[in-house]
Design a protein around this nucleic acid. Sequence first.
RNA 1: GGCGAUGUAGCUCAGCGGGAGAGCCCCUGCCUUACACGCAGGUUGUCGCAGGUUCAAACCCUGCCGUCGUCACCA
Length: 903
Amino acid sequence: MLRIAERVAFRVGGVMKSIELEKVYNPKEFEGKIYSAWVDSGCFKPVDKGGEPFTVVMPPPNVTGILHMGHALNNMLQDTLIRYHRMTGRPTLWVPGTDHAGIATQNVVERQLAREGLKRQDLGREKFLERTWEVKERHHDIIVKQLKTIGCSCDWSRERFTMDEGLSRAVKETFVTLYNRGLVYKGEYLVNYCPHCGTALADDEVEHQTDAGHLWHVNYPFADGTVFNGKNYITVATTRPETMFGDVAVAVNPDDERYKSIVGKKLILPLVNREIPIIADSFVGIEFGTGMVKITPAHDPNDWECGKRHGLEAINILNPDGTLNDVCPTEFRGLPAEEARFRVADALSDGGFLLKTEDYTHEVGHCYRCGTTVEPYLSKQWFVKMKPLAEKALSAWRAGEVRFYPKRWENTYSSWLENIRDWCISRQLWWGHRIPVWYCQKCGHMNVSVDEVHECESCGSTDLKQDPDVLDTWFSSWLWPFSTLGWPDETSDMKRFFPTSALVTAYDIIFFWVSRMIMASLEFTGKAPFRDIYITGLVRDKQGRKMSKSLGNGIDPIEVVELYGSDAMKFTLCYLAAQGQDVLIDMDSFRLGSRFANKIWNATRFLLMNLEGRNLVPVERESLSVFDKWIYDSLNRNIMTVRHAVENYKFNEAAAAIYDFFWNDFCDWYVEIAKQRLRSGDDAECDRLASILMDILRESMAMMHPFLSFVTEEIWSRLPGTEGFVISSSYPVWREEREAPAERSLVESLQSIVRSVRGIRAEMGLPADVKMRLVVRLDRKGEVAEFVKSNKNLLGTLAGSGEILVDDEGTADVAGAFPASGAGYEVFAFVRDVVNVEKEIPRLEKELKKAEDDLAATLRKLSNPAFLSGAKAEAVEKERRKQAEFEEKISKARAHIEVLKSF
RNA sequence: GGCGAUGUAGCUCAGCGGGAGAGCCCCUGCCUUACACGCAGGUUGUCGCAGGUUCAAACCCUGCCGUCGUCACCA
């Protein structure tokens, strides 16, 4: 990268020298250096030029590990947005940060300890937390390094961590405020409990899987010897016989005619000989199983609700570690539930209580962090009352304050909010925000306070104990968009950058995170935290499978950078990131971006080589040739396409437009044409052309910068006439004066002729050194004819032909020449000796057939009175034009076939 | 079971009311004064199936089939 001073010297030096670029595009040479230069010059910080700010807060990666491809996709798309908006002149802020990821991080540390044969209790809370902070620091450093490696232009001076002092204060503030508003409460409820992690989980932290299990049919005898249907017992079916020790009733549906007579009777619970009643409750399905359900309020959510309705006791049969407790008969105490299940079944069988055992697959909840089967478990926990919060989030969405891209995710969002249940926020973990509640050991009062309490506010006792639990990790994440900007303080960042503009995240955390952020933000700031929500697809392998450690199909983003460079990765991901679509990739996919970056590099190299002896001049619109106007028109169109695409989160459309413009229009046509013009020997013309080439190249770099940040910056630094960094330059704008439809049409005609001639060459297999004599017959006189005539040399170069006659009178002798045709022209190549008639006639016949089919379709429409009266005028007009075109094609093709047959 | 997505060239996918597209792959020539990570040319499709709406449907509607994702307390 050249320093700015050197570049200025190029500019004022008058006559240019050739600027040499290394022969090979080697991103490793400059990506690191450029990133440092950006950071050093502070260009990731917002610059206030007066416009409306554009703000994004980065979804904070968990400090449990390192970044995967999903993070790379996410952050690279954000970077593209950020760079684009920054270049449009808006004060642009991207806030980076990381998440402490409570349970996940704690698990990482506990796994480490386990390898040393230790448990967290062996270390004690303080030592354990020290160790966790070390893990956090280590992963944090790796994550930051990775984000820098992939080029994220976030403002590192504003980096945050969910357990920072400021954010911790925000968490406490939130908890206390919600408590005071009656939206946080403590209560004894049946919660999801992971015996492995030793903590309660929220409903959405439970993943349901289909597990193979059994359905045991167990007989419960009547207590009073009642005989019912010829038996002195009834049968219930259960998937979890071990929970029978917690049974307090058997329920039937009140409308179940079969059992009306036995409701109220007592049964004997086998193995423990406890009496339980038969009750009627409408939640019982008449159709399912025997129509009888054992009721275990402490271990099943339905039974819990049912028990509450009937005032039944909840008997907890489990220890916190998932083993059976002292309520159970001695022989089962201490056994893990899973093992106890079979032992109890055996015991039931031995006692003659087991009627039968069936195989049964059903949905079972598992911990989303460790995969252990989750137990419904009765315990005292803290909850957030969600309904009032959800209402606000729903109305904000209905009012259009948040918008999803793609829109369909709104269903996911709204249906979750509409069916919301209270959120269990206490976790029996050590890593996280300690619940800001102090229990008075004397009077039992709960002191809820942001600041540490030393004296009970009720009785004044100093004997206080803080709640040992911590808060769910999402209880800090849901504040992220404003806690990172300094809330609850009224900071200048809050005033300036909140609410933020866009959120980019994956769909798997819409519930966990997106909707909760909206709820928290509305509750505490009164505003939606962001306007646009762009939901990315998931990164998958080429077979469409999720990338995972266990499958070993993951791709390390850093390896991609090593192999292809950050630009190649970002461009490829953008190119593949169709809105709402998953991104299927393998390592080779990134060759797309790599090839493109290489193309840009080499095109630049070529153009810079040609600066030798040139004197760069201002580009005057009036002096532009048809080709010049055409390329500016192309650039102009693409600028509009890209701007529109980025502003609507259509990254793939933007990337495709860039690719198409730079590779096809610019390199394959404009630069190829320029090559010939540069050989003219006319210094003034060459100076002008070199200036235009530099102009287009410079503007292209700016246009492409959000997508290929490093290579465009590197090239920018080598181009004459550039100042500063491209990252801080202005995004190109569409300009009306650049529109050139007439010139576009002329160039397209010429392109079409060139392609026809090339087609003939290729079909004939003509060696490069054989120059064909050509007649180009134009159907109409006028501009096109003049244009082709004045570009005969160019046509010859591009198409590889010798002497060319442009015939707009239709008089040239073309006897024996090989024909080809397109709209408005025919070309005749004098290549009789090498024509392969056998091969060519079928090809032309195929063309003819296609044209005939097209014509037939067009005629069908035009002969349909309904079409003529019902269709828009333009549509009818277009069909007429098509008719003429197809007829022309047909007549030419027929003639050409005759010509060939005569050979 | 509810909801949603998706089915277009061998592969990955754009297009979403008026002439079937891209990239990769494949085939044929070319190391043409940047790029073989290249240049030029070419092949390839009952646009899942069946109905309907419309002058016109890959595109809108309905049903079906396939695939995937999500939510859901049925013992």
